[in-house]
């Protein structure tokens, strides 16, 4: 379906002007022109336009917590889902959705995945957030504490003694962990 996706940067061609676009500016200053129904999947955008009467079509909405890379990923997901919805308004084609999501997530590194979870939370896209947290959970299944800590980038603020005590307290949880 990527063929039907309009170019994401600000180059506005003359032919596809009839569709309403919304301009979103990422943290690093890039402006995305996004088709309205796709942009409205971003709850933060939807409420911005619903709650503020003084915004116009020309308003560029800044999204200071979203990087350009994360935005590309988010729009790919939202556009695909908009396409599914447009084609089958009643019930999404489940198998196609699953195939898309599997392929989509395969291409994402752990870093990209985390970046997108943060962005999806900020933009308040519950469907995408549910999907991404599910993927994150899959990636840390049966992994060691060290792996999970590195995966999430958690800074360990326990002293070695505190950590050892905790491990002793939850001894049962540390049996049969996979090698990293």
């Amino acid at each position: 379906m990527s063929s039907s996706i309009a170019s994401s940067s600000s180059s506005s061609s003359s032919s596809s002007k009839k569709e309403k676009k919304i301009s979103l500016k990422t943290s690093d200053g890039e402006v995305f022109e996004v088709e309205e129904p796709v942009a409205m999947q971003l709850e933060i955008v939807r409420s911005f336009f619903a709650d503020n009467e003084d915004v116009t079509e020309q308003t560029v909405m800044p999204l200071p917590n979203v990087s350009t890379a994360a935005m590309h990923g988010i729009l790919e997901y939202c556009r695909a889902h908009e396409e599914f919805r447009r084609r089958m308004p009643e019930a999404a084609p489940e198998e196609e959705v699953r195939a898309f999501e599997a392929g989509y997530v395969d291409r994402k590194s752990n870093e990209e995945l985390k970046e997108m979870i943060l962005a999806a939370n900020y933009l308040n896209i519950s469907k995408l957030l549910d999907f991404l947290t599910g993927v994150a959970a899959k990636r840390i299944e049966n992994k060691s504490v060290e792996y999970v800590r590195a995966f999430f980038g958690v800074e360990n603020d326990f002293t070695p003694e505190e950590e050892a005590n905790l491990r002793r307290e939850y001894e049962w949880a540390f049996e049969g962990v996979d090698e990293d």
Binding site: I140, S144, V145, V148, R149, V154, L166, A173, F174, V177
Partner: peptide, 11 residues
């Protein structure tokens, strides 16, 4: 078990 292990990640 997996969830309980995350108690060790940080405060």
């Amino acid at each position: 078990k997996e969830a309980a292990r995350t108690s060790v990640l940080s405060h």
